[in-house]
Amino acid sequence: MSILEIIGGILILIGSAFLFLGALGIFRMPDVYNRLQAGTKATTLGGMSLVLGVGFLEPSWMLKSLIIIIFIAYSNPISSHALARAMYRRGHYPLIKDKDKEKMDAYREVVPHKTKEEEKS
């Protein structure tokens, strides 16, 4: 085994482990924002690391692996931001454990919460 294969194997193991952890986070977290937190971060590093590992195993594929890595790092945060904003504007507000609910939700000043009557209409 050459040194490149060892590095590639380690990167592939780390990447797949983080992909698994991201999926587990999506399964366990209580509301959509926390799911986005776990899903975005873990799958971004997991995917980047695994694709880079394959690039180390096959050095002639490195350039295309780098393109996929850059695209994953660029697109995952954007889609999670779009989803979070859409869910808030739709009326799914974040779960807040703290007692002071007004203070812990600063986004309320931009998008006022819907009342019960508005939600029904």
Binding site: P30, T44, I96, K97
Partner: peptide
Amino acid sequence: LVESNFDVARRVLTPSLPINPGIVK
């Protein structure tokens, strides 16, 4: 990025889910 992944891993693997979410500006 690496730090945040270990943070996520710690939170996900702890059975009691140590979270205290909120929105700040």
